[in-house]
Structures are given as structure tokens and as C-alpha cells.
Design a protein around this nucleic acid. Structure first.
Length: 890
RNA sequence: GCGCGGUUAGCUCAGUGGUAGAGCACUUCCUUGACACGGAAGGGGUCACAGGUUCGAACCCUGUAUCGCGCACCA
């Protein structure tokens, strides 16, 4: 590697390595490989989409899983693609075309011409998010990229429709559905969001009629409603038949004001006598409950609000064509003028809003297609019994609840962009034909104009992307997939439905593990949204800090199952970490010499052994973290190991050897460094793909590896395993040794603190004297001197300090900082006093515990021993401090 | 109403039975031949509250408060 720059510059390398990986076909899955398979399908982003922080989190996790699996020697398929997103895409294109003045309404163009525009738009803009995923470093198999409107995929959707239709699981019927008046289409129950809304409860008087049809003077029923405009379609007033207040009027009629239409008063158990006035106006065509009541009482349905949200002709000439919101005002005004408005109350209630367009949902009676879910029992038990595991597990409860309260899925949408319902109606006989292709005498048939819900195509994603219904080698090899990474907000929309489709069409589950990410919020805890402008552009962050920095920062702050409060500081931290990694490698490079292979055990220092054990520990922690899908813990373990252990202590300690003259020792130290770095780079690779590849090759760690195991790219370098018992024995690694080295570093910290306490500038070098309690090697002493940044470190077992010499104590001995003429006796006395106070608190705590017979009898021996050791350490320290105090004459 | 989460340092959060942790922010000092995107040393927490279980509780149990989310809803 040539002389490398002082700071890591991600822009210089990211593009290069991504292209390198593509050229190597390193992302492409080979179904004929002998390696064990690992597969994952991407949650297809909307083809209209732009990369946002949620995508970054989600896809970084998938990339980490994929890259780690490759390093573990698996044949990896990460299958990417996009979703046609019916409503969203159609809305975007309609808006564009209106802006361009090409149409006012899509009817102006007609279905075929309009769809041509959508396809053109898709060709132009649909690949943006894919390009963005590449910038993030995603190692998807782009040769298998799919789109839910690809011809093959469409064929799958139609095939599924036809099969389910023939099984009588899909049917058409006139039902009350959730209607989005802005998008002018039906929606499924899941696409309706209930939002608490401040409204009013209007109380209206409807005059009662006598048996002869005349208004009964002074007699009224009072109904309460949140939606006055619907009264134009009232067909009855309902009361509870057991309500004594209204027993007498059941069976009479009242006059529907404005319409001046007599309507019956019916008795129905649905009515809660305790709510409102106990009288309910019944609007069969515009309320699901009223619709059911109407069915029970054979009432007609009068539709007064049309599919566009405007009043129909049946609402009356004064209202026809008026928007529902405006009509509300007019109705209130009219009833007020008639003297029929009794009162208005403020009222907070939940109103269904379209998840897509945000407008209030209109219950609307229309012909729609419905699906009775297949494979429900198998799907429910798969999760309940753990064949599919959720992470975090708690989502399985949400899933189970939904699965046991299933209602038929409204799958038809009154859109043009999407998979058209494969059903034809005979023009003359009215015969219904359902099939993959149009009937032969196509001219005699009309195809259903509806398209299918986008989720009705994406629920097939795990197998339709792999070539189903053909028995492809990809399918045989990679289905079921292993992991699915997605947001809990689509657990019903997508996850549950994919499981059902998997059992119904493949006879097997689609994935074994589902990882639910948190939601990325801003640092104030608000959801990210375009209107708030609080959503950072990941591409800008990548340009500023690098893709690795964005990935690392995001993963480090994203705990399993919790929302993530995103702060640009997190990315900055990632950038700083990359720079640290870079400079650690730069330091190694500046020591010169080839990559060192064999480590000679007899030449290892305590520090060498310590860092090898720390590496071992970090690998262990990372392994556990991965097994539990705790990615943030893995990044934190890596961060701590590399920065706080390797760089802060080990690298500094090695300078004793590296700046020395013993070439053999120096080579062995470099061998340890190379061992650590080559392992660290591999451990980091799934999180930081770009910088690790650059350093892997730049440092030459690829040179000794077989081509397919790291020789060409770090992507296939073996994933580090914990050091085995043989390795530990060979290199003399033991926990006791690790503790001894840790004590050395702790004593250094204490010694540095002495300088600060004595207010000596950090840059000024002083001499220390160590009075050892245990034998220390000359090298240990030199390492300590270096770490203390000391002028000298004299080891003197017989040292007798002058009065007031600052000193710290440790099991290794006493470390003095003699400062002739500079000693501030009272400052030292204060310091010792503070120290003593802390120690005494600890000793009291320890003694209390150990004097408690219940503790000594019941605590496990290991814990007991730990506490005894701790107490005796504190007591030893107290004795040392006390001696120092006595010398000071305190 | 039912269910699920959260409540730990100034901020954001880790930590599921055995000495309270990290990053950022803060204080003081340092441009020493990897790194100022850096180094060193510090200050800062009755772990929301109340009971209980235990030798021992931030952690387990019960309850309360509070914030957030989901589901279900009566006009």
C-alpha cells in the first residue's frame, strides 16, 4: 500500500469498490453452489420512492446479514426489487400530467394512453431508489432484480387470483367498504387509520307523524349525529326496543326534515339507550352499522354521497354536486332555519382517514372483490409454535391477535395502475369468466375494470421473485428464505399475508426469522415527514460523511425493537470511527515491513496476550449479539474493542517494542498487530464494507488468502471464530494474565491522575518511582513509562518517600511522583482524604455483606469468593493510603 | 375499553439477579513522530414511585403515575 492519507476519504473509494464487487459478480447467487444457502428478499420499496432513513436502517441490516453469511461460507441470495405501489404511483403520475397540462382527469386520456404515461414515468424515475441502495453499499443480486409489474410476476398474480377464485375463496359482492374519495377507490380495513378528531355532536329534532301521516304537533324525536350531511339519506330512526322512553313510538313514523319524507321508527338492540338521546338516525348507505340495521329491517339504501365525496342527485337539488363538507354546513343551516337544531356539543371521536391520501374515509356501498384468507391455521400456528420466530418476540402477540380476528380482504381497487382483475363478463349473456387469458371470442366480453390491491401482488414476493410457478433451481435452493427485515407497521399488510401465501402456494413458510426494525424519528422523537422537513437526505449524509459512517452510526444507535431517535451526531461518530480505523492501519503501515504471518508464542509480551484475549472476547460478544439480532450491541462491542482496547492501550503499549532495537521482537509485535487488524477488518466488514475492503487490500491482508476466501475480496474472507482452546494454550492466554495486564493499565491511569492533581501540564514530563509489590519485568516497566509519558520510571523496592510525595496504590505496588520543591502538602492531604472516604464506604458495604450469615450461607461460592477478594483489595488499599497519610503527618 | 412498549448521567440510550455503563455535551490540560474526525484526566445518576420475593433487585412479581404506539369502538 502506498503512503496513505492522514484522514480517511470515503468519496475516493466507495464508487471504486462497489464497481469492483459488481465486476467480480460477488453479489450474484449461484443455485448450483455446494455451499449451504442463505437467502433474504428485500421489502420492495415503492417504485416512486426516494431513499429515506427507514430504508437506510432496514437495508443496512439486510446487507450486514448477507455479508456476514457470505463470510461464513454460505451461498447468499439477497433478492432485490421494487413495488408498483398502485395508488401512490398513479397519484404521482396524475399530478405530473395535470401540471404538464396533458389532462385534467385521467378519463381525458383513457386507460391505455394513461398507462403508457405511467410506464414511461416508471422507466425514467423507477430506478432511482435502486441506485441509492447501491450508494449505501447494498450487496443485492441485481441480476435477479424484480418488479411487481414484470410480465412474469403479473402472471403469478393472475394465476393466484384464478386459483383462489376457483376455490371460492375470492368472490365479488356489494358491500360497505372503506372508500377514499380523493383517490376514488376502495381500500382494505388495514389502510384506514383511526385518528382522534375534534368534532361536534349535533342534536336534531325530527317531527313525529300521526297515523294519518300528519305532523303530530309538538311531538319530536331527537337524534344526535356527528355527520349532519348524511341525514339526507336517512331511512329510519332507531331506538332500543327495551327503552321505556320510546316503547310507545316504535312503529310510528317521523318526518325526515328537508327531504320531507316519512321514515319509520324501528326498534333495534344495536341502539345503546345510555348514549346520546337513545335515538339513532339510520343512514343505510353511509354507515356500516346502519347498513346492517337496514338489512335487518328491510330498509332501502339511498346513496346521497358519491364516489367523489360530493352529494348526489338523490340528496336533493339544493345539494347535488356539493362537496360533503360544504353540504354539512348547508344542512345545519337549513335545520337551524327550520328550528330543528336543538343543540351542538363539542365531541371528540375517532374518524377513519385514508392512509394514502389522508382524507376522511367514506363508508361506501359498492361492488368489490373480496378474499377469504387461505392458510390461516398453518400461518397462525407457525408463529405460535416458533417455526417462524419474531424479533423482538412480542410482535407475535400482535400477529396472533390479528390472525384470530380476520375479516375478508377487499382486494379490488378502482385504479388503472396495477394488475387487472382477470375476470370477463359476457356482453350479452352476462356470463362470468375467470382465467389467465381473455376468452377466445374476446370481442364478446368485457374485462372487469378494477385492478388488484398492491399487497395482493407483494404477498407473493418470496417465491414469485424466484420464478414460481416454475420449479426453478433458484426456488429449490433458496426458498424458504432465512431472514426477513421489515417494519412492524406492515406486519398485517405484508408479513402475515406472505406467510399465508407461502403455506397456500408453496406449502411451506416463506422465512424463518422476522426482524422488526424500529421507526426512525428525529431527535425530538417526532416521526420523520416531508411536511416537517425533519427527514435528512441519506445521500447528502453519505456525501458528507461516507456510506460506512452512515451505516455504522445508524446501527450503533438502533437497539432491537426500539424506535431510533436519529441525530446527525450519530453519523459523525461513524465517520470518526472510520477515521480511527484508517489511522490505526496507517500506524501499522508506517512501521514498515511485510505482513507478518506466524506469531511466536515465546516472544509474546503480556500486552500482546492481553489484546489477543480482548479480541477473543469481542468475537464472543459479537457472535452472541448476532445470534440474538442485537446489531447495536455488536457495533458497540466492536467500537469498544477497537477504540478503547486496541488503540487506547495496546497500540500505545507496542511503541515500547516498535521504537526499540530488538528486530525479532519488533517483527513479532507486528505479527500480533497484523493478526488483530486482519481480524478486526473482517469483523467490521458487514458494517463498514467500503473502508474494510480498501484497507484489506491496501494492507495486503488479501495476499496470503485463497482467491475465494479473501484473496480477491474481503467479502469472502472467513468470518472470525473465537480462538479455540488449542490456540489459547499455544499462546499462553489465561484470564489471570488478562487481569494482571489490566492492573498495569489501571495503575497508569492512577499515575496520570497524579499529574493532574498536582496541576502539572500534560505536556511536561516528570519522573515516577515504582515500589513494586510483585515482580515486574523490565519491559512492563518500560511500557508503563511510555504510557505514563514519563521522563523516567525508576523501580525501587526500598524506596522511602519524602514527606508528602504524591502516591497511588495498587496490587502491583505504589507509584510515587516525587516533585522536589513542588509538593503541595495540603493538596496531597486533601486528595488522600477524599480517596479514603471512598474506600471506607466500599469497605463498610463489603463487611456488612460478608458479616451477614444469610449471605455467606446462601450465595454461590464463586460470588462469595468474588466479594471476599474485593473486600481484601479495598482493605489493602486503605492500609496503603493510611501509611501515606501517616508519612504526611496527617 | 383491550393489548404492547418506554420511564437509568444535562441529552440520546445500553444494561434481565452479584462493584451503575457508552456516545454526545460539560470542566481542565495537551498540537508528543497513527489519528484534533485526536490524546489525557475529571465532574455528573436515592436507575419514575410504592409495596413484595430474595442473602442480594435497575433487573423478578404486584400496584400507581406518566409518555408513546397498536387494536377495537355508540350515533
Amino acid at each position: 500500500m502506498p503512503e496513505i492519507s492522514k484522514a480517511y476519504e470515503p468519496q475516493a473509494v466507495e464508487e471504486k469498490w462497489y464497481q469492483f464487487w459488481l465486476d467480480q459478480k460477488a453479489f450474484e447467487a449461484n443455485p448450483d453452489s455446494a455451499k449451504p444457502p442463505y437467502s433474504i428478499v428485500i421489502p420492495p420499496p415503492n417504485v416512486t420512492g426516494m431513499l429515506h432513513m427507514g430504508h437506510v436502517l432496514n437495508n443496512t441490516i439486510q446487507d450486514i446479514l448477507s455479508r456476514k453469511a457470505r463470510m461464513e461460507g454460505k451461498e447468499v441470495l439477497w433478492l432485490p426489487g421494487t413495488d408498483h405501489a398502485g395508488i401512490a404511483t398513479q397519484a404521482v403520475v396524475e399530478k405530473t400530467l395535470r401540471k404538464q397540462g396533458l389532462m385534467k382527469h385521467r378519463d381525458d386520456l383513457g386507460r391505455e394512453a394513461f398507462l403508457q404515461h405511467v410506464w414511461a414515468w416508471k422507466e425514467k424515475h423507477g430506478g432511482i431508489i435502486i441506485q441509492q441502495l447501491k450508494k449505501l453499499g447494498c450487496s443485492c443480486d441485481w441480476s435477479r432484480q424484480r418488479f411487481t409489474m414484470d410480465p412474469d410476476y403479473s402472471r403469478c398474480v393472475q394465476k393466484v387470483f384464478v386459483e383462489l377464485y376457483k376455490k371460492d375463496l375470492i368472490y365479488r359482492g356489494k358491500r360497505m367498504v372503506n372508500w377514499d374519495p380523493a383517490a376514488r377507490t376502495a381500500l382494505s380495513d388495514e389502510e384506514v387509520e383511526m385518528t382522534e378528531t375534534k368534532g361536534h355532536l349535533w342534536h336534531f329534532k325530527y317531527p313525529l307523524l300521526n297515523a294519518d301521516g300528519q305532523v303530530a304537533e309538538g311531538e319530536f324525536v331527537v337524534v344526535a349525529t356527528t355527520r349532519p350531511e348524511t341525514m339526507l339519506g336517512d331511512e329510519a330512526v332507531a331506538v332500543n326496543p327495551k327503552d321505556p322512553r320510546y316503547e310507545a313510538i316504535v312503529g310510528r313514523r317521523c318526518l325526515l326534515p328537508i327531504q320531507n319524507k316519512p321514515i319509520p321508527i324501528i326498534g333495534d338492540d344495536f341502539v345503546d339507550p345510555k348514549f346520546g338521546t337513545g335515538c339513532v338516525k339510520v343512514t343505510p348507505a353511509h354507515d356500516p352499522n346502519d347498513y346492517q340495521m337496514a338489512a335487518r329491517h328491510n330498509l332501502p339504501c339511498t346513496t346521497v354521497i358519491g364516489p367523489d365525496g360530493a352529494m348526489t342527485a338523490e340528496a336533493g337539488a339544493a345539494y347535488a354536486g356539493v362537496d360533503r363538507a360544504e353540504a354539512r354546513k348547508l344542512v345545519i343551516q337549513a335545520l337551524t332555519e327550520l328550528g330543528l337544531l336543538l343543540k351542538v356539543e363539542d365531541y371528540v371521536h375517532n374518524v377513519g382517514h385514508s392512509q394514502r391520501s389522508g382524507v376522511p374515509i367514506e363508508p361506501y356501498l359498492s361492488e368489490q372483490w373480496f378474499l377469504k384468507y387461505p392458510g390461516v391455521d398453518a400461518s397462525a400456528s407457525a408463529v405460535a409454535e416458533g417455526r417462524i420466530s419474531f424479533h423482538p418476540e412480542r410482535w407475535s402477540k400482535t400477529y396472533a391477535h390479528w390472525m384470530t380476528n380476520l375479516r375478508d380482504w377487499c382486494i379490488s381497487r378502482q385504479l388503472w395502475w396495477g394488475h387487472r382483475v382477470p375476470v370477463w363478463y359476457h356482453r350479452t349473456t352476462g356470463e362470468v369468466y375467470c382465467g389467465l387469458d381473455a376468452p377466445e371470442d374476446a370481442a364478446n366480453w368485457l374485462q372487469d375494470t378494477d385492478v388488484l390491491d398492491t399487497w395482493f401482488s407483494s404477498w407473493l414476493w418470496p417465491f414469485a421473485t424466484m420464478g414460481w410457478p416454475d420449479k426453478t433451481s433458484t426456488l429449490a435452493r433458496f426458498y424458504p428464505t432465512v431472514d426477513l427485515v421489515t417494519g412492524p407497521d406492515i406486519i398485517f399488510f405484508w408479513v402475515a399475508r406472505m406467510i399465508m401465501a407461502g403455506y397456500e402456494f408453496m406449502g411451506d413458510l416463506p422465512f424463518r426469522h422476522v426482524y422488526f426494525t424500529g421507526i426512525i424519528r428525529d431527535k425530538l422523537g417526532r416521526k420523520m415527514s416531508k411536511s416537517l422537513g425533519n427527514s435528512p437526505d441519506p445521500l447528502e449524509l453519505i456525501a458528507k460523511y461516507g456510506a460506512d459512517a452512515l451505516r455504522f452510526g445508524t446501527m450503533r444507535s438502533a437497539p432491537l425493537g426500539q424506535d431510533v431517535l436519529f441525530d446527525e451526531k450519530d453519523v459523525e461518530l461513524g465517520r470518526n470511527f472510520c477515521n480511527k480505523l484508517w489511522n490505526a492501519c496507517r500506524f501499522r503501515q508506517m512501521q514498515g515491513g511485510e505482513v507478518q504471518g506466524e506469531i511466536r508464542p515465546e516472544l509474546l509480551s503480556g500486552d500482546d496476550r492481553w489484546i489477543l484475549m480482548r479480541l477473543d472476547q469481542a468475537i464472543g460478544e459479537i457472535t452472541t449479539a448476532f445470534a440474538e439480532y442485537r446489531f447495536n450491541e455488536a457495533t458497540q462491542a466492536l467500537y469498544r474493542f477497537f477504540w478503547s482496547e486496541y488503540c487506547d492501550w495496546y497500540v500505545e503499549a507496542t511503541k515500547a517494542v516498535l521504537h526499540g532495537t530488538d528486530a525479532v521482537r519488533k517483527a513479532n509485535t507486528l505479527a500480533v498487530i497484523d493478526f488483530i487488524l486482519s481480524h478486526a477488518l473482517r469483523l467490521f466488514h458487514p458494517f463498514l464494507p467500503f473502508i474494510t475492503e480498501d484497507l484489506w487490500q491496501g494492507m495486503g491482508y488479501n495476499q496470503d488468502m485463497p482467491a475465494d476466501q479473501g484473496g480477491v475480496t474481503i467479502m469472502f474472507a472467513p468470518w472470525p471464530k473465537q480462538l479455540g482452546d488449542d490456540f489459547r494454550a499455544h499462546y499462553g492466554l489465561s484470564p489471570a494474565l488478562m487481569d494482571a495486564v489490566s492492573l498495569k493499565y489501571e495503575l497508569v491511569s492512577q499515575g496520570r491522575n497524579l499529574k493532574r492533581e498536582a496541576k502539572i501540564q500534560a505536556g511536561k514530563k516528570v519522573g515516577y518511582i515504582l515500589k513494586p509489590a510483585l515482580p515486574l519485568s523490565a519491559e512492563d516497566t518500560e511500557v508503563m513509562r511510555l504510557l505514563l509519558n514519563a521522563e523516567t520510571l525508576e523501580v525501587n523496592p526500598d524506596y522511602v518517600s519524602a514527606k508528602g510525595t504524591p502516591v497511588v496504590h495498587s496490587p502491583l505496588g505504589e507509584l510515587y511522583m516525587p516533585l522536589t520543591g513542588l509538593v503541595d502538602e495540603s493538596a496531597e492531604r486533601d486528595r488522600l482524604k477524599r480517596e479514603m472516604e471512598k474506600i471506607e464506604v466500599e469497605i463498610t458495604k463489603g463487611e456488612q455483606r460478608l458479616n451477614n450469615p444469610a449471605f455467606t450461607e446462601k450465595a454461590p461460592p464463586q460470588v462469595l469468593q468474588e466479594h471476599r477478594q474485593r473486600l481484601s483489595d479495598w482493605i489493602a488499599k486503605r492500609d496503603q493510603i493510611r501509611a501515606a497519610q501517616e508519612r504526611l503527618g496527617a
